[in-house]
Simulated assay, not measured.
Amino acid sequence: MIGQHNGNRLPIDISVNQDQQCSFNTTECTDDCGPLGHQTDEWDCPISCECKSSGFIEGDIKFDKQNIQLIKKAYGIPSTIKARGATSLNIDLWTNRVNGRVKVPFVMRNDTSNKSETAIYEAVAAISGSTCIDFINRTTEVDFIEVIPGTGCWSYVGIE
């Protein structure tokens, strides 16, 4: 079988038993792992009542031991509020506004390539041109976005 990773074609050896049935039942676990989920095996079947200590939520939110409590807190919002979304509740996640435009501080790590840096600046200019969001260079702001070189499309929720 041939797969792709970072645009490169790679041979992949996959042995999957399509009749695989998960035998561990998490309904009797006392620890509510919420969006983290329970420890799983290579087929994503639960294997214990312990919560995962790293992984992804919703496909693009990365978590590890440092931000588990933050994620549990963020996902502990009552489902009726989550269903309506932060924007309809008028919750300001970025509070710096000037003339109705939201200012979001960001910084790029020094090891970001010139090509990537150019693409990022073009993207933030496009976003600023078609929305009420302005990305500004971070100075002393506590809350900010850090752009780091890497693979994939994900971010941490934040660190407490």
Rank of each mutant, 00 (worst) to 15 (best):
128 S>P: 05
147 V>H: 03
70 L>E: 03
124 V>Q: 02
34 G>L: 09
58 E>S: 06
133 I>V: 15
45 C>K: 02
153 C>I: 04
100 G>D: 06
97 R>H: 09
32 D>K: 06
124 V>M: 03
21 Q>M: 14
41 D>I: 11
45 C>A: 02
133 I>H: 03
10 L>C: 09
44 D>G: 08
117 E>H: 14
70 L>D: 02
78 P>Q: 03
9 R>F: 12
151 T>Q: 12
36 L>C: 11
15 S>P: 05
23 S>M: 13
83 A>N: 15
66 Q>E: 10
16 V>N: 06
36 L>W: 11
5 H>A: 09
18 Q>M: 08
153 C>Q: 05
22 C>G: 11
114 N>H: 08
35 P>R: 07
17 N>E: 11
95 T>Q: 13
59 G>W: 00
127 I>F: 05
90 N>K: 13
19 D>K: 10
126 A>D: 14
147 V>A: 05
98 V>I: 15
63 F>V: 04
30 T>M: 05
122 E>L: 15
20 Q>M: 08
68 I>D: 02
39 Q>P: 01
101 R>M: 10
106 F>I: 03
32 D>Q: 06
146 E>H: 06
135 F>S: 12
44 D>S: 15
31 D>Q: 11
70 L>K: 12
22 C>I: 09
131 T>F: 08
14 I>W: 02
143 D>Y: 14
87 T>W: 11
10 L>G: 04
27 T>I: 05
79 S>P: 01
30 T>Y: 06
129 G>P: 00
40 T>Y: 00
92 D>V: 11
69 Q>E: 15
151 T>K: 10
113 S>C: 12
99 N>I: 00
131 T>P: 03
150 G>I: 00
139 T>E: 14
150 G>D: 00
11 P>N: 04
157 V>H: 04
56 F>D: 14
73 K>W: 10
8 N>C: 13
127 I>C: 08
138 R>W: 03
16 V>K: 12
157 V>A: 13
